[in-house]
Amino acid sequence: MVKNRYIARINCLQPIPCNPCETSCPFGAIYIGEDITNRPILDLEKCKGCGICVAACPGIAITMAMITGDAKDFVSIPYEYLPLPLVGDTVVLVDTNGVDLGEGLVEKLNRPNKKDPTTLVYVSVDNTITDRAVGIKRKVASIVDVIEVVNRIEIVDPIICRCEEIRESEIIEGIKKGDRTVEAIKRRTRSGMGLCQGKTCNRLIAGIIARESGISVGEQAPSSKRPPVGVISIREMSEE
């Protein structure tokens, strides 16, 4: 095991087409190869712990660790929130699921790529959590207040066409009367004839037709389009 120097730890889980870790490493320590969906392979001997790949990774999926053999190890974690922890601050380390692992002491901050704001926070941690410590808890953590469990809900007829205020029941009414296209519903209810010209509701209406009639959205013809696309005042149109 490599001791007493920082080594990258790559937590890249899926075959995403991406290779900045490989191309950013000044020491050639990371290999992905021609097929950029390959998962990165780290050469522990070549890795110098510079942190450049940590700051380059779009997935924020690389951290670093230094194993000392003593009670305290060190980890280096990219952090992109404000406020940034300061040297000497105590921070809470978390695992990949956000579970608290305990506290650590901030030893150093660094920006490996001076042109990019991603900051690496170097923290001394208890050696029992070194392997799992991949995140620093945000100062203001998200708190969920599940305020009540409710049974009172009735599903209420929601607005589908936001512009013309057409409700779902009106669309369903049209389908019952034989409408099978967004166009037919439009002619019956005015849905899609407001200022946005159906940009928001057409897809919803197609979904309701599919649900109620069994004709999938793909089988329905898209609604016809004529000029103008979007809102244009009569004056604009008439002035040349």
Binding site: C12, L13, I16, D95, T96, N97, G98, V134, G135, V144
Partner: peptide, 15 residues
């Protein structure tokens, strides 16, 4: 979406 994006949220404690 990508796990790496979801993990950013999980690490921040977002349910």
């Amino acid at each position: 979406g990508y796990d790496v994006h979801a993990n950013k949220l999980r690490r921040a404690g977002v349910p």
